[in-house]
Amino acid sequence: MHEIFLDELKKLNEEFMEMGVYVNDQIDQATRAFVDHDKKAAQSMVDDQEKVPKESLRIQKKALELMALQQPVATDFRIVISILKAVTDLERIGENALSIALETIRVKGNARIEPVEDTISEMTHNVRHMLIKVLTAYVQDDKKMARDVDNNHNGIYSDYIKARKLIVKGVEKNPDTAVAASSYFVVIRLLERISDHIVNIASWVIYKTTGKLTELIDPNDAL
């Protein structure tokens, strides 16, 4: 009986990780399409947009079933609850990546600001690194690594401020970039939001490993 539960739990964990890896690729694909002006790649993401919410729903359904039918407590309870909570953050990350793809389609063909796009690439790299880190912390039950994700979040915020300044500068230099600039603002904001969700996942890793609920993001830090 309990082997069945452990097996189910293992599967649930694997599905959560797979979804994490998939969403991480989505961030890459979306920003790459944005920076490369690749409308086709962006469109293929839009075509696949049902995949993440569907998977999220499936994981949530499974987690709820385990809660109701197996009534896990202690460590098992924390594993199921943290998946149930963290999966909605993963889903939001997927939505944000999709929004970046939509911006690609919107901005195509307008004058661009190269230094901003470089910063967006860099920011994407950092956000993806954060997500990989939080997923690793999740698998390894490493609360120290999870806490460290919060430090990376501060770096993302600096990237965000830097990008904003570059956008303003670019528009001042060439007003034709105004349309692209409006998209840049959206994209950097979305990347920053993704990093917030990653920090939320980190706080679920901490709950899973210690049973302590922590607020890693200072609510006063809202942009």
């Binding site: 407590v73 202690a74 460590t75 210690t210 302590k212």
Partner: peptide, 18 residues
């Protein structure tokens, strides 16, 4: 505390009916 975050793995295992 015992039902959410017990200190010992064996406690968690027992509580989960292992």
């Amino acid at each position: 505390k015992m039902f959410i975050s017990p200190k010992n793995k064996v406690t968690s295992n027992y509580l989960n009916g292992r």
